[in-house]
Nucleic acid binder design. Structure first.
Length: 831
DNA sequence: TCCTACGGCGCT
DNA sequence: AAAGCGCCGTAGGA
């Protein structure tokens, strides 16, 4: 034990000549003060905890008296927090600059801290900076935990409340207006903490009583299972874990379901562990008991009505692989429901939702010490939160949102889960070959770059190897060694070296090399290597789709992202054969890929939503919309429209959908070689010709001004906190992008179930925004093609007043697709 | 050592 | 800066 008398120095008496024997840091010659005690009154309301003394503190011998400390004092005063009400201390009493602290050293300081904490007994703790916060609460991510009361994670101190704030020192790293903004927000945070503390609003232990139980013995497991079986509706969650160090790759042969949890009411939770975790685990299930529990759980998964937090896209796969139940009866999902209520990205985490919508306190830190028992306690919190959140969210959903949940997002999640689970086949040999080819090319470009005279100069000046992947170094060479004029700046006003700039200067060999190097690296690192790394043991790519990933209602794809693979024409700029990337994705053995695309779906949706008669007419009459637009604006016959005129009309069409400002539209016209007056005339003629379109756009702006949100025909909403140029552009784009996406999503569900019902072995392998790709047995090809086209085109809604059209393509891999001619049952030559 | 921000770039 | 994404490597702070 450390000498506890050291920290009893409070109430204004300081000593700097103390010797602490708890660790050896005190003896560092870099330090003036040895074992710096805290300072301030007993029973202070606020105990302010930094990481360690800074140099100024060390010189003076008291915490938070240096530059940083003075800053903090100023801000405290501005926030209305009285200095006499504060006790200042640090997690570490001695911390020689740039010394790595060992666990033993941390531990000895912790004992001082606990003693000090108990003596001072503050109302709340304020953690100054991320490190102090982590030390006190076990949690990371200071930004997202601002203005949050967290439980202290130090053993025996769990009932104490910790408020994190940014480290005052971070102010010193900024300048000018940014510094003012940051400082204001820090003062505001302190003010908020004062208000919370004075009002007593945030209290730990203010939650309802908890009835959590963990099965520690086989008998208890059976009792809990008996109990679960008496309920028909259960919140459910699974904890899974890797049995090895490697990440889990499908089909998760190195992963296990570690525990299963259920809840059937607020504050009620049960957890059943299945697989021992951590050295302290109590779990000693024999194989026989394990199988017995598994069988009983499988019955629950098959028969009960369940709901969870993102259950369908995560837990369901494990239920399938570990319990043999392919689909559960899921009637709700708290994450998806919250997404419908609030589309903002990254706000759907379970703990966050529980903090906002229930009286629960954070429990995430339990996971850090996740032996079997703690993991099960963690799981109990999860399912309890899930149950409570359903009670909160369900009544909040509008009729349309209920429809979206039940008829669109839950069925869609089922389908996407199945699509992800089965995966898409990858031509692994071709993948390896391509990787080799790219490696060779990159090596050669790299060595060529390093022989360039400018690079040699740079290397000798900097005494370092030039890295073509460093925008800083590339900019340095272009600006200072080649004396190239800056034509574009980055967000931080640095010399931009993006592809536009490189293209501008690519007559210079060095710049051309960098351009090629970047393209090659992009192909290799983002597409080839990532695909390789994430390939399952079955040689397939198992992407994961998110239905809650975007503010517009589009789905997103990740690990690997199969929605941004480079098109053939892009790859052709880099490699001789442009199909090399997409052709890596192939149908199941002996089958063929069928791709069904909605043609110009966003434009059609825009026509419907705006109700512009002329624009709708183009689609009803089956005209080429862009050419027809050009014909109207130029007052000529559609046959007389030149390629350039059509291109111009197309630009306006998309410009409108994307909320492009008039000035930028005109600018892009001029860049294409038109005169400014011609561009202006085109635009004003367009407005005259399509008044409905422009009226509709104006309506969107009024909508977000008046009610602060928009709603699509399907009931998707997008909220806006303020109205500015950015939000107005978003408002122009949202209804079309969202509604077009929903049409594809509904089609995915319909196609999936049609194939199932008809017993056809064709399956959806991919989907990219407006297209659906299936792997189809050869002999069923024409039948499937006909069904898919029909299903997609026959969607019918009262607002859908123009026909929607689907183009079909097919091929033996994704890189070689040919147009399908259904009439003649033939394929048209290369596209 | 980890984490975050940034510059950059692929797709619809 | 024309909407919406995911992911790469670098750079810098903690």
């Amino acid at each position: 034990m450390p000498q506890l008398s050291l920290i009893s120095i409070v109430d204004g008496e300081y000593r700097t000549d103390l010797k602490c024997a708890a660790c050896d840091l005190c003896s560092s010659p870099l330090l003036v003060t040895n074992c710096m005690p805290g300072t301030g009154p007993h029973n202070a309301t606020y105990m302010i905890v930094g990481r360690s003394p800074d140099k100024g503190d060390d010189k003076i011998g008291r915490p938070m008296t240096g530059v940083n400390g003075r800053l903090l004092h100023e801000m405290l005063r501005e926030a209305g927090i009285n200095y006499n009400n504060c006790y200042f201390t640090n997690t570490l009493r001695c911390s020689p600059f740039e010394t790595t602290i060992k666990e033993r050293q941390w531990a000895s300081c912790r004992d001082y801290f606990i003693k000090e904490l108990e003596e001072v007994n503050p109302t709340v703790l304020i953690a100054a900076g991320a490190q102090a916060m982590t030390w006190l609460t076990g949690q990371t991510g200071l930004r997202k935990l601002r203005r949050r009361g967290l439980p202290c994670a130090i053993s025996g101190q769990e009932s104490r409340l910790v408020f994190p704030i940014e480290q005052p020192a971070s102010l010193l790293n900024t300048r000018g207006p940014e510094q003012v903004v940051m400082r204001n927000s820090m003062v505001a945070d302190l003010q908020w903490i004062r208000e919370q503390t004075q009002s007593g609003n945030i209290m730990l232990g203010g939650d309802i009583p908890k009835d959590y139980r963990v099965a520690m013995t086989p008998q208890q497991a059976d009792d809990i299972l008996d109990e679960i079986e008496t309920h028909d509706l259960l919140a459910c969650d699974l904890e899974t874990g890797s049995t090895e160090w490697e990440p889990m790759l499908f089909p998760y042969s190195n992963g296990r379901v570690v525990a299963v949890g259920f809840s059937w009411g607020p504050g009620i939770a049960r957890a059943i562990p299945l697989y021992a975790r951590g050295v302290d685990s109590f779990l000693l299930w024999t194989d026989k008991i394990y199988e017995h529990i598994k069988t009983r759980l499988a019955k629950i998964f098959r028969e009960k009505k369940l709901f969870g937090q993102n259950f369908l896209s995560f837990d369901q796969k494990w239920v399938r692989s570990s319990f043999g139940v392919d689909f559960c009866n899921i009637d709700f999902d708290t994450m998806v429901a919250h997404y419908l209520l609030d589309e903002e990205r990254g706000t759907h985490g379970l703990e966050r939702l529980a903090l906002v919508y229930t009286t629960m306190s954070p429990w995430k830190s339990l996971f850090a010490l996740a032996d079997t028992n703690n993991l099960c306690r963690y799981l109990c919190h999860d399912v309890d939160a899930t149950w409570r959140l359903r009670e909160v969210f369900e009544p909040m959903l509008s009729q349309k949102q209920k429809w979206l949940l039940q008829e669109l997002l839950l069925p869609l999640s089922d389908v996407l889960m199945d699509v992800e689970y089965k995966g898409v086949r990858v031509a692994d040999e071709a993948l390896e070959n391509l990787n080799g080819v790219l490696t060779k090319k990159i090596v050669s470009v790299t060595s060529r770059v390093r022989k360039r005279q400018q690079v040699r100069g740079w290397e000798s000046v900097n005494n370092d190897e030039f890295n073509p992947g460093s925008p800083v170094q590339v900019a340095d060479i272009m600006q200072n060694y080649m004396k190239l004029k800056c034509i574009k700046r980055t967000g931080s006003q640095a010399f931009s070296t993006d592809k536009e700039v490189l293209a501008h200067y690519n007559s210079r060999p060095f710049v051309a090399d960098i351009e090629m190097w970047r393209r090659l690296m992009k192909l290799q690192s983002t597409y080839v290597e990532q695909t390789r790394r994430l390939l399952g043991e079955d040689g397939k790519a198992h992407t994961s789709y998110k239905v809650h990933g975007t503010v517009t209602g589009r789905i997103s794809s990740s690990s690997p992202n199969l929605m941004n693979l480079p098109r053939n024409d892009t790859v052709a700029k880099i490699l001789d054969d442009g199909s090399l990337i997409k052709s890596l994705f192939v149908p199941d053995e002996g089958q063929v890929l069928l791709q069904a695309d909605y043609s110009q779906i966003e434009l059609r949706v825009m026509a419907c939503l705006s109700g512009d008669e002329r624009f709708c007419g183009f689609f009803r009459e089956g005209k080429d919309a862009h050419a027809a637009t050009a014909a109207v604006v130029q007052s000529c016959l559609i046959e007389q429209v030149t390629k350039e005129q059509r291109q111009g009309a197309k630009k306006v069409g998309f410009g409108i959908i994307y909320g492009m400002g008039e000035e930028s539209l005109i600018k892009s016209f001029v860049e294409e070689g038109n005169t400014e007056s011609a561009a202006r005339k085109f635009l004003s003629d367009h407005k005259t010709a399509f008044p409905g379109v422009w009226r509709y756009m104006g309506m969107q702006e009024r909508m977000i001004r008046m009610q602060k949100y928009q709603e699509t025909p399907f009931g998707r909403r997008r909220r806006y906190t303020e109205v500015n140029q950015e939000s107005i552009r978003q408002a122009y784009n949202f209804p079309t992008q969202s509604t077009a996406s929903d049409l594809t999503l509904l089609s995915i569900i319909r196609i999936y179930h049609a194939m199932k019902q008809l017993g056809i072995q064709a399956r959806i392998v991919l989907t990219v925004y407006d297209s659906i790709i299936l792997s189809v047995p050869m002999e069923k090809f024409w039948e499937v093609a006909r069904i898919v086209k029909h299903l997609m085109e026959s969607l019918s809604f009262h607002w859908l007043t123009v026909p929607i059209k689907v183009d079909l393509e097919a091929g033996m891999d994704w890189g070689h697709l040919k147009k399908v001619d259904l009439e003649n049952q033939s394929f048209k030559s290369d596209i």
